[in-house]
Amino acid sequence: MQDKKRARQVSGKTQRFWKKHRKLEKFAYLLPSITIFCVFMVWPIVYNMYLSTMEWNMVSPVKKFVGFDNYKNVFSDPGFLKALGNTGLYVLLMMLFCFVAPYFYSYVMGKLITRGAKVYRALMFFPSLLSLAVAAIVFMWLFNSVSGPVAEIFELFGHESPHWFTSSGYVIVALSIATGWRSFGYNLIVFLGAIVEVPIELIEAAKLEKASNWKIFWRIVFPLTSPTALYVFIITFVMGLQYVFTPIQMITKGGPNMASTNLVYLIYQYSFQFFQTGRAAAVAIISLVIFLLVLLLQNRLNKRVHYEN
């Protein structure tokens, strides 16, 4: 009895405390999220900014402040410019393989064909179950310029296979195909989910107006699936920056002569191979700015997207 009373008194006390400090209560609820957000997002960025103004090799106890020297060095480094250009190429190719292609493919599968859609869907999704490392090895053998099946096909037509992984230009295409193959199916499923949501009557109504499949896509399916398209567009962009890292690391290590490197791989090399931590941090910050620009673009596009609700 006494205990209960005391308990009530205590709870009364705490209630009064929280009533007095309403703002504190809100903060208490937010605390776990804020902690995680700060520790894993804000702090690394801030620390990275700090590192980008230092000269340090990750082991030395002394860091030397160099101001913007790291940035200056990065921009005058032909390797960085090469990586920046390559990243643009990767993004472009990934857009082709993992945004444009699955978009049209899902339209065909979802609305134009009546048979076998389920089988295609399963087959197309299958590569997404594999890890990127596996995809890299598979394509390393497929594109082997001496004995790979692709080389054999070239031979069949009397041509010599290009040296996919050792000639610049081809290497980006080959690595993009490997990454694209692995990620195509996932994007396809996402697109398909949006496209089957487009009511069939809308397409039928357009067909009665003699609208071509192409027009139906552009004037009806595309606007109605644009929220999904925007999402896939963004993740494909990120793929172009990030996902290609695995095949680069597995197959070419950025070579030949930096022909296949990209920003993310360059950061990795600077920091963990050359131990130029400051420079790596500077490239990371530049990459971050590029990401931010894309996010701004997304915001702009978002205003033009048709959301059903």
């Binding site: 357009a206 067909k207 009665l208 107006e209 009806i220 048709h306 059903e308």
Partner: peptide, 30 residues
């Protein structure tokens, strides 16, 4: 004959209006 070549106009049970188009655009589409 394809639906577009039959010269028919149709009103659907759920109207099948294009949700992303205004009344005007819906009517003008065809």
């Amino acid at each position: 004959l394809e639906p577009g070549d039959r010269n028919v106009a149709m009103v659907f049970q759920n109207y099948a209006l294009y949700p992303h188009m205004t009344v005007e655009k819906n009517i003008l589409f065809g």
